[in-house]
Amino acid sequence: MSLLSRLRCGRILLLGMALSLPTALPVQAQTLATELDADQIARILTPTDQLQGQFQQDKYLAVLPRPLHSSGRFVYQRQQGLSWQIEQPIASTVVISDSGISQTQNGQLVWQSDANSPQTTTVANIMAAIFAGDLATLQTTFDISGAQQPDQPWQLQLTPKSEVLKNFFSQIDMTGAQQLQGLVLHEASGDRTEIRFTIEAD
């Protein structure tokens, strides 16, 4: 949620702005062999209505010496949106859909934001577009550049076009072969979230 509360209330500006992390960005750090052109980028992602699998997430926070590691399952369906089921270390479920974003723990609501907030809608749309491989939607909000080494996964860099969105994500990195393999969400504060996927066949 805090992503949203930040924008709505400017809380992001409160504290901890001066932090800068040594940027160890595993996905981006590869040598960029071949720049991908727009056509190639368009062909990289295969649009899908449904995607599910396992995830491993590491959250690098400025104030913590070690990343926060979590794992679990995710299910994306065009109609229902994204269900992010964290199993370790504490079970909870984040649902990101057209009707907003909510998080529950043991069936109890931890936090929610409904679709009345445009920030919520924006974040929900971006997440949906990433999992659906909907490049057209992503291109309306991001400048996208990409690179691929022969026989290696492709890498895409998504840079927000609007200043408003930059308050959420300074950059999003995606990596994958046929399907999405990894995602890095860079936040304006310097914190970042790295996610690795193991996609399951339906």
Binding site: S2, L3, R6, L14, L19, K59, I96, Q103, W111, L185
Partner: peptide, 25 residues
């Protein structure tokens, strides 16, 4: 404690960002 586990849950959400900046205050 529910307060503790809720606070931690939110930190583990992929969208948990800015709360992390206030871990000490």
């Amino acid at each position: 404690n529910p307060l503790v586990s809720k606070a931690i849950s939110r930190l583990y959400s992929p969208l948990g960002g800015s709360l992390a900046q206030h871990l000490s205050d």
